[in-house]
């Protein structure tokens, strides 16, 4: 098979790295060769965070370049816009409705592009808007946003019925938030159908 490339983008603290870990564990369980690459460091301080996951029969490079992502999952609106050049022709884009203002916007030196989704929709036929943060909030904690997005991602890639994803999720989240995260997983796959 050809190699599939996924790019996750968000803001420091949104939990992109945790779901990269979960999806990587799931892909390995399915028998795929898988590589995951994350850039952190300065990004811990509220900067942009990117994680890349590649899977297939044999994966060499762990990272990807312009026009190479089969799927981009964005945890935040502006980050979807920033990541767009990495999307392959015909690739898919899942984006959360969540807006997190970067410092230049907070200080009034830049304008937040609230219309990002509408503009992306006009150019990228496959773009899907998901209210993952909002859903997670209604389930009790916005931090479960990442699991909602994970669930949507797994479904979109057609991997949802291959293994017991909820078991993999349960193994990778703290016990006290397990129930909520499993509920978030259910919510995510339902949202993609809607």
């Amino acid at each position: 098979m050809t190699i599939k490339s996924i790019l996750l983008v968000g803001v420091g603290g949104q939990g992109t790295i945790l779901i990269s870990k979960i999806i990587t564990a799931g892909l390995a369980e399915m028998g795929y060769d898988v590589k995951m690459s994350e850039i952190h460091g300065m990004s811990q301080r509220g900067g942009s965070v990117t994680t890349q996951i590649k899977y297939g029969e044999k994966v060499y490079s762990p990272n990807l370049g312009i026009g190479e992502a089969d799927l981009i999952v964005s945890f935040e609106k502006v980050e979807a816009l920033r990541a767009l050049p990495y999307l392959k022709a015909g690739g898919s884009l899942i984006m959360d409705d969540r807006e997190i203002y970067p410092m230049p916007v907070l200080t009034g030196d830049a304008v937040y592009p609230h219309e990002a989704y509408d503009r992306l929709k006009a150019e990228v036929p496959s773009v899907k808007l998901i209210r993952a943060a909002e859903t997670a909030q209604s389930l009790g904690n916005m931090r479960a946003q990442n699991i909602v997005l994970l669930s949507a991602m797994v479904k979109l890639l057609g991997l949802d019925n291959k293994i017991d994803w909820k078991k993999v999720v349960a193994e990778n989240v703290p016990e006290k938030s397990r129930e909520m995260n499993l509920a978030a997983f259910d919510a995510g796959s339902a949202m993609l159908e809607a």
């Binding site: 502006v78 816009l81 937040y112 592009p113 150019e123 990228v124």
Partner: peptide, 10 residues
């Protein structure tokens, strides 16, 4: 890039 949107990401 396969797609372009003329909107600046701050």
């Amino acid at each position: 890039p396969a797609y372009r949107v003329e909107l600046e990401a701050p």
